[in-house]
Design a protein around this nucleic acid. Structure first.
Length: 841
RNA sequence: GCCCGGAUGGUGAAAUCGGCAGACACAGCGGACUUAAAAUCCGCAGACCUUAACCGGUCGUGGGGGUUCAAGUCCCCCUCCGGGCACCA
């Protein structure tokens, strides 16, 4: 470096991200190995860092920016820590918006989607995100979705995919069926104002309930997941342990099976309540026109309430059928009612009503004057008002041979008794329902099934035939007219629909529904490990090396959609022998929302801030760094443009100082050893803080604050550096490590400064600095001195001073002396290194 | 109704184990530089009382109580905000 390099003009020292960032971006884009992961044999520990893949809407929003800024900082940090990092990105590219866009602008969905992907990929590159684009996954392309079809067939063969007619959720806006997980408060997850209708349709389902128990029990092992997400999944799965009990219908061959979690209260049952849809209710109605009318009225009322979006508003009511059921435990006859609050699709659609020990039953019994019979009493013998629902420290009364038993013991014994006498059994009920995956839409994965028209051995006419692997992929036809008329668009493409049966060669019709797009995102992260595989969804050895994902980062809105489906898919793949891991991700992080003026950014509120605009004004580094600085990552972040400007100013300071003193420091004869030690002390304290934070708390806001403190201190030492009082060894160490610490947060600037200060190679592959505890150590520590808990003064003592020394120093202080003068010192509390509190009277 | 979060200056926030509340920023105010402005740099800054000023004092982490030498942090009760589940038997 020559003297001329030192005399760079002020103008050249001005931080100009608009010049620096595109220059580096071009260099990075040209190097397709820059962010590539290494193989199993790299000798390094692996780290799979993953952010949830976006829907290619065509525009990154601030939520994406925040999500990717977090993941990118982590990936770069782990590279610098010597890990073999997999950091991929892809596109959740099927879905309804492409069809809507097609309707609106007459652009084919594929063209629209691929155009959006290209635009968003460019935005991501502009952000400086460290993705390995060689492993990019695009779910709407046949080389990906063919494996959706392959999995579907495998699941069909295993009985995990099946077709049935049932009540399903229909969104009139989407013109398709939705899964239960996609219905929120009776409304569509994509159309918050659209009430979901119930329709009877034949649909394909995936048997997620087969894994309900494992999905639930393994939640306790996911200690790297937020408790909130685990709780939400636990609630969603909704396991309920209970007993099935058969009540014989008096004077008929029918029986009513009820589900109860409190079989111990069954001697207090004074009626049986049926859902209006219940088969026994229907059979009574067949011979009772009045009852039939009342049941129809209930169903009509439910339908109306659902359409009004307010199911909770229906008042509970019921009708007495006039028939009786027999309680198998005591032979007692109880009336059978039909009630509008009994859910047909939970448990068995029938309950026993025990008014004395259930709040709802009590309320219902009061309304209709049904008998209330107490059969549970507190162990303590105290009189509890009814309804008494407690089961701990309570025992049975007037309950035959179980009288005096504890509730919990009785529940087990009575279930066993039922099983022994053939009228019931212990059982488990889940709220979770099988995953309905059929969609009456075009832009999705075709379901790889045909219906053989004539039928053949084992398949009746019109029966289901799964396509063999050789017939895959079933490619989505390109020329499809998208209209708003009902039914699957593929059904209007004769070339697609009409095919031949792969078994008998006769004519066959294709399934015209496509798969829920949540299928695509249920296993995409496995594909990243082997994105170009044409013979399999992925190579098992590769997946077993990389899985589980070490850190998954995304929004909490997927807590029960994507995150439960992908856990299910992982378990299915494990049982197919493709992978060894039971769970997809060891650690999950859900970042907070980005808000503006106190509200979530949305077009309708007009408070959307465009990342492009921020990058244009302040650069990608400042935009990303602000997203990490303004709040800890798990909290909501209020976007304030002035804050971005502040970060930009800060980066400008770093740039100016580094160019001035980091490139070629001024030479001087006498150095200031104390000032040098102080600089190095702050430097090493900063390294220690950031290193520790990355491995645990992820409070990047305080990491960046720590870097600011270091830079403020460097700036304060500017006169000393100018005068040559800080040796070049020290400035070199300070600026080198400052640059390395900036690399995860502001990669463009770090790359630039690394190069201009003579660093070799990519700054992201340089070893992360190691804090030197000796250099970081403070010589003295400030100890606040309190009197009765109120601050009096602050004294300085050498680090490591013992209690006696600190106490002596505190009592020797003039301010302290005047404060305690004339008072009695009752006690002196000394916490070494922390504080002194003198208790006086 | 049940289950999770959260509430700290004008604003975003910090205080990781019970030990100086408000680090670091933003906005603001004052100053330097400049013909001027921008940019940059330096300084002030929780509220209230007192003072000419310094000094000094009181209050202060949603509200009320408690434990403790000491509470934003622990315990009890309550309010408000956000999220999840909910005629689930």
């Amino acid at each position: 470096m020559t003297e001329s390099a030192r005399s760079v003009s002020e103008e050249q020292r001005r931080y100009n991200p608009a010049e620096i960032e595109p220059r580096w971006q071009a260099r990075w884009d040209a190097d397709d190995r820059l962010y590539a992961a290494e193989g199993h044999d790299s000798g390094k520990p692996k780290f799979y860092c993953l952010e949830m893949l976006p829907y290619p809407s065509g525009q990154l929003h601030m939520g994406h920016v925040r999500n990717y800024a977090i993941g990118d900082a982590l990936a770069r940090f782990m590279w610098m820590r010597g890990y073999n990092v997999l950091h991929p990105m892809g596109w959740d590219a099927f879905g309804l918006p492409a069809e809507n866009a097609a309707l609106k602008n007459n652009t084919p969905p594929r063209e629209w989607t691929l155009g959006n992907i290209a635009a968003m990929r460019k935005q991501m590159q502009r952000m400086g995100l460290s993705y390995d684009w060689a492993t990019e996954v695009t779910t709407c392309l046949p080389d990906y979705y063919r494996w959706n079809q392959w999995f579907f067939v495998k699941m069909y063969e295993k009985g995990l995919a099946y077709r049935k007619k049932s009540k399903v959720n229909w969104c009139p806006e989407c013109q398709t069926v939705l899964a239960n997980e996609q219905v929120i408060d009776g409304k569509c997850w994509r159309h918050e104002d659209t009430i979901v209708e119930q329709r009877d349709l034949t649909q394909w389902f995936l048997r997620i309930t087969k894994y309900a128990d494992e999905l639930l029990s393994e939640l306790v092992k996911l200690d790297g997941w937020p408790e909130k997400v685990r709780t939400m999944q636990r609630n969603w799965i909704g396991r309920s342990d209970g007993t099935l009990v058969d009540f014989a219908v008096e004077g008929g061959a029918e029986k009513i099976t009820v589900f109860t979690t409190r079989v111990d209260t069954i001697f207090g049952a004074t009626s049986v309540q049926l859902a209006p849809e219940h088969a026994v209710a229907k059979s009574f109605a067949a011979t009772d026109a009045v009852l039939a009318g009342q049941i129809d009225e209930m169903l009509a009322q439910q339908k109306a309430a659902r359409e009004a979006g307010d199911l909770g508003a229906i008042e509970k009511h019921g009708v007495n059928t006039g028939c009786f059921a027999v309680n198998p435990y005591n032979g007692e006859k109880v009336p059978i009612w039909v009630a509008n609050y009994i859910l047909a699709d939970y448990g068995t659609g029938a309950i026993m009503s025990v008014p004395a020990h259930d709040e709802r039953d009590f309320e219902f019994a009061q309304k209709y004057g049904l008998a209330v019979r107490r059969v549970i009493v507190p162990k303590a013998g105290t009189e509890e008002p009814l309804p008494f629902t407690g089961e701990d420290d309570a025992v049975l009364a007037d309950s035959g041979q179980w009288t005096g038993k504890s509730c919990v013991d009785a529940q087990h014994e009575m279930a066993t008794f039922a099983a022994e006498h053939g009228f019931g059994s212990a059982t488990v009920t889940y709220r979770l329902k099988d995953w309905g995956v059929s969609r009456q839409r075009y832009w999705g994965t075709p379901i790889p099934m045909v219906y053989c028209e004539r039928g053949h051995a084992g398949v009746e006419p019109g029966g289901v035939v799964a396509l063999p692997e050789s017939a895959l992929p079933v490619v989505l036809p390109a020329q499809v007219e998208i209209t708003q008329q009902g039914g699957s668009p593929l059904g209007r493409v004769p070339d697609f629909v009409n095919t031949t049966c792969p078994v008998c060669g006769g004519s066959a019709l294709r399934e015209t529904d496509t798969m829920d797009t949540f299928v695509d995102s249920s296993w995409y992260f496995y594909r990243y490990t082997d994105a170009k595989d044409a013979a399999a969804p992925f190579d098992s050895d590769k997946a077993n090396y990389w899985f589980p994902i070490d850190q998954y980062i995304g929004g909490v809105e997927h807590a029960i959609l994507h995150l439960i489906y992908s856990r299910f898919w992982t378990k299915v793949m494990r049982d197919l022998g493709l992978i060894r891991n039971d769970e997809p991700a060891a650690r999950l992080f859900t970042q907070g929302m980005v808000i503006k003026d106190g509200a979530k950014m949305s077009k309708s509120k007009g408070n959307v801030v465009s990342p492009d605009l921020m990058i244009e004004r302040y650069g990608a580094d400042a935009t990303r760094m602000y997203a990490l600085f303004a709040a800890p990552p798990d909290r909501d972040l209020e976007w304030q443009e002035d804050g971005v400007a502040g970060i930009s100013r800060f980066l400008g300071r770093v740039y100016r100082l580094t160019l001035k003193y980091g490139v070629m420091p001024a030479a001087g004869s006498e150095t200031d050893a104390a000032a040098e030690a102080a600089l190095l002390r702050t430097l090493h304290q900063t390294i220690a803080k950031i290193t520790e934070d990355f491995s645990g708390r992820w409070h990047f806001n305080t990491c960046i604050a720590a870097i600011m403190i270091l830079v403020n201190e460097i700036a304060a030492a500017e006169p000393l550096m100018e005068a040559g009082k800080i040796s070049s060894t020290v400035t070199a160490e300070v600026f080198r490590n400052l640059t390395l610490m900036l690399a995860p947060f502001a990669p463009f600037l770090a790359a630039e400064l690394w190069e201009v200060t003579g660093g070799k190679g990519a700054v992201f592959r340089v070893a992360w600095p190691v804090a030197n505890a000796e250099l970081a150590r403070e010589a003295e520590v400030e100890i606040p001195v309190q009197s009765n808990g109120k601050l009096v003064t602050v004294i300085k003592v050498p680090v490591g001073s013992d209690q006696a020394t600190i106490q002596a120093a505190a009592l020797a202080d003039a301010k302290v002396a005047s404060r305690i003068e004339g008072k009695t010192v009752a006690k002196v509390i000394v916490v070494p290194g922390k504080l002194v509190n003198i208790v006086v009277k």
